[in-house]
Simulated assay, not measured.
Amino acid sequence: MIVRIMGEGQLRLADSHFAELNKLDDELLAELEQGDEDGFRRTFTALLTRVRELGEPLPDDALEPSELILPAPGATLEEVRELFGDWGFIPG
């Protein structure tokens, strides 16, 4: 799966990593619903960090369609809440 982190670029992630990422996604959703700013920042940073660690960066000139788009690291709780919807970012 191709994942884009807005403002950073694209990474290719193996499907086998999505169970781990989905746990962080579930935590993030709960923190967004509760308005937990500190928890949101901690979990959102952890999610982006794991995507970067597990993913293989694509070249800047690659034109692959992104199957998953994550907000930029500096996104606020409200901005992420608007993008997140009721289902989260990570499929599954």
Rank of each mutant, 00 (worst) to 15 (best):
M1G: 01
V3A: 14
V3W: 05
R4L: 11
R4H: 10
I5N: 05
I5S: 05
I5Y: 03
M6K: 12
G7L: 14
G7W: 14
G7Q: 14
G7C: 14
E8W: 06
G9P: 14
L11K: 12
L11R: 10
L11W: 08
R12P: 08
R12G: 10
A14S: 13
D15H: 13
D15S: 11
D15N: 13
S16Y: 11
S16I: 15
H17I: 13
H17E: 14
A19Q: 14
A19M: 14
A19L: 15
E20S: 11
L21K: 04
L21F: 03
N22F: 11
K23Y: 08
L24D: 06
L24E: 03
D25G: 06
D26P: 05
D26C: 11
D26M: 13
E27C: 14
E27L: 13
E27H: 13
L29V: 07
E31Y: 13
L32Q: 02
L32G: 05
Q34A: 06
Q34G: 05
G35K: 10
G35L: 12
D36Y: 02
E37S: 15
D38F: 11
D38R: 15
D38P: 04
D38A: 15
D38K: 13
G39Y: 13
G39R: 12
G39F: 13
R41W: 01
R41A: 15
R41G: 01
R42F: 11
R42E: 15
R42A: 08
R42S: 15
R42D: 15
T43W: 04
T43A: 03
A46V: 02
A46L: 14
A46Y: 10
A46C: 09
L47E: 04
L48F: 07
T49H: 15
R50C: 14
R50H: 11
R50K: 06
R50Y: 04
R50N: 03
V51N: 01
V51R: 00
R52Q: 13
R52P: 00
E53T: 10
E53D: 10
E53P: 07
E53S: 10
L54Q: 04
L54M: 15
L54A: 06
E56I: 09
P57A: 12
P57G: 06
L58A: 05
D60N: 01
D60E: 15
D60W: 10
D61C: 09
D61H: 00
A62L: 05
A62N: 12
L63P: 05
E64I: 03
P65R: 08
P65H: 07
P65A: 03
S66M: 07
S66F: 03
E67Y: 02
E67C: 02
L68P: 02
I69D: 01
I69K: 00
I69C: 02
L70R: 03
L70Q: 00
P71I: 00
P71C: 00
A72I: 08
P73H: 07
G74N: 12
A75W: 09
A75E: 05
A75G: 08
E78W: 08
E79S: 08
V80D: 03
R81F: 07
R81S: 01
R81Q: 07
E82I: 09
L83F: 05
F84H: 00
F84S: 10
G85H: 08
G85L: 00
G85A: 02
W87C: 04
G88K: 03
F89T: 08
I90Q: 00
I90S: 00
G92V: 11
G92Q: 14
G92L: 13
